[in-house]
């Protein structure tokens, strides 16, 4: 209650400043929680698909881009022995 009255006593500008700070911090928490969707097999595939849509097949099949997507999904990029023709020689492994 004391805090609330203290907040009410603030002038408009500090009130907006403080409100913005708390709003942004809550937003960061929400975004961080939402980032759970980026992880795992599903997150990896989404990431690769997004790169393919944005910059084409040749770009999104590069090892560096696959490694970035894989690390971002919490996995480790590994090479596959003797992949079938046309298949990527890389795979993202998750614990």
């Amino acid at each position: 209650m004391n805090d609330l009255s203290q907040f009410r006593n603030l002038k408009l500008a500090p009130k907006i400043l403080l409100g913005s700070l708390y709003f942004l911090m809550i937003l960061m928490i929400i975004f961080s929680l939402l980032a759970a969707w980026n992880t795992g097999e599903k997150g990896y595939k989404q990431c690769v698909q997004k790169k393919c849509d944005q910059k084409g097949e040749q770009f999104c099949s590069k090892a560096r881009e696959l490694a970035n997507c894989c690390s971002g999904a919490g996995g480790t990029l590994s090479t596959v022995n003797n992949p079938n023709p046309g298949e990527s020689p890389y795979t993202c492994l998750f614990n």
């Binding site: 400043l17 700070l21 975004f31 961080s32 980026n38 971002g72």
Partner: peptide, 20 residues
């Protein structure tokens, strides 16, 4: 307050690919 705003800003910038 300044350092908290810096934290929010830099954390958001780093997570440019993580966040929507």
């Amino acid at each position: 307050v300044v350092v908290l705003f810096w934290l929010v800003y830099t954390f958001w910038v780093v997570n440019g690919m993580t966040f929507p």
